[in-house]
Computed example of a mutant assay.
Amino acid sequence: MPEAVFFDLDGTLADTAPDLAGALNRLKAEQGLVPSPLAQLRPQVSNGVRGMLGVGFGITPDAPPYPALAERFLHLYATALCVETRLFAGMDELLSHLDDAGIAWGIVTNKAERFARPLIDALGLTARCACIVGGDTAARPKPFPDPLLHACISTGMLPADCFYVGDDIRDIQAGKAAGMRTVAAAYGYLGSSPPIPTWDADAIIAHPLDLLSLLGKH
């Protein structure tokens, strides 16, 4: 049984796609463009601003309009972080199981701390989670191991005693590089990652509560 379980945020712990899509479509409306359907945007959420603007505007970070659009997108998102965002079905029950078992849990995301912390607070989880590590907390974001190693230091855990759960190949790469057991969340966004069986995760779960079987709790 692990001492701690760390979760990616977008697409693993919570379904943040509706609010990110909402921010993008408000930006598109300001530019006189028709909205993009959620189904088209959802897989790109794990790719952050680059993914959202890539689908919504068909541009890459080297395009001249990109910096201004990215800044405006993030401003719009910050004003409505947790309107439709919800924990994935079964996640709250899973977190309660971890609490009851005395297993610490935390969040390690590539979302900047200035967005991650108020979002976790709005979800009512701040007092329960052992750490919140953003994409700008450590020297390098995932797929580098730095954020996960930072989580271990801040919680006093050894990487070998921890699980990391994520819905993108970079999560598995980061977890392995940190020396943790890795779990791929097949219920997540998956994005433009290669097929999930090729990620070389230690386990794959189709539902948050499937993690309990790996913990010997179900």
Rank of each mutant, 00 (worst) to 15 (best):
residue 27 L to D: 15
residue 28 K to I: 08
residue 29 A to Y: 14
residue 29 A to N: 05
residue 30 E to V: 15
residue 31 Q to H: 14
residue 32 G to N: 14
residue 36 S to Y: 01
residue 36 S to T: 14
residue 37 P to W: 14
residue 37 P to N: 13
residue 39 A to L: 03
residue 39 A to C: 10
residue 41 L to A: 12
residue 43 P to Q: 14
residue 44 Q to H: 15
residue 44 Q to T: 10
residue 44 Q to C: 07
residue 46 S to K: 07
residue 47 N to L: 14
residue 47 N to D: 15
residue 48 G to K: 11
residue 48 G to S: 08
residue 48 G to M: 12
residue 49 V to K: 00
residue 51 G to C: 01
residue 51 G to Y: 00
residue 51 G to L: 00
residue 53 L to S: 13
residue 53 L to K: 03
residue 54 G to Q: 02
residue 54 G to K: 01
residue 55 V to N: 15
residue 55 V to H: 11
residue 56 G to R: 13
residue 56 G to I: 05
residue 56 G to E: 14
residue 57 F to K: 11
residue 58 G to Q: 09
residue 59 I to Y: 13
residue 62 D to C: 13
residue 63 A to S: 13
residue 63 A to C: 14
residue 64 P to H: 12
residue 64 P to K: 13
residue 64 P to G: 13
residue 66 Y to R: 10
residue 66 Y to N: 09
residue 67 P to Y: 08
residue 67 P to E: 05
residue 67 P to N: 05
residue 68 A to S: 10
residue 68 A to C: 10
residue 68 A to F: 12
residue 70 A to T: 08
residue 72 R to Q: 07
residue 73 F to N: 03
residue 74 L to C: 07
residue 75 H to R: 09
residue 75 H to Y: 06
residue 76 L to V: 02
residue 77 Y to N: 10
residue 78 A to C: 03
residue 79 T to Q: 15
residue 79 T to I: 05
residue 80 A to G: 03
residue 81 L to C: 07
residue 82 C to G: 02
residue 83 V to W: 09
residue 84 E to I: 07
residue 84 E to K: 12
residue 85 T to C: 07
residue 86 R to K: 14
residue 86 R to Q: 14
residue 87 L to C: 05
residue 89 A to D: 08
residue 91 M to D: 00
residue 91 M to N: 03
residue 92 D to C: 03
residue 94 L to E: 10
residue 94 L to P: 06
residue 94 L to I: 04
residue 95 L to D: 07
residue 95 L to H: 11
residue 97 H to K: 02
residue 98 L to N: 06
residue 98 L to Y: 06
residue 99 D to S: 02
residue 100 D to P: 09
residue 101 A to C: 06
residue 101 A to H: 03
residue 102 G to K: 00
residue 103 I to L: 03
residue 104 A to T: 09
residue 104 A to F: 07
residue 104 A to I: 05
residue 105 W to Q: 01
residue 105 W to I: 01
residue 106 G to T: 10
residue 106 G to L: 04
residue 107 I to P: 01
residue 108 V to K: 03
residue 109 T to G: 10
residue 110 N to P: 09
residue 111 K to S: 07
residue 111 K to Q: 11
residue 111 K to E: 02
residue 112 A to I: 06
residue 112 A to K: 13
residue 113 E to H: 11
residue 114 R to N: 04
residue 114 R to K: 10
residue 114 R to H: 15
residue 115 F to S: 04
residue 118 P to W: 00
residue 119 L to G: 05
residue 119 L to I: 09
residue 120 I to R: 00
residue 120 I to L: 11
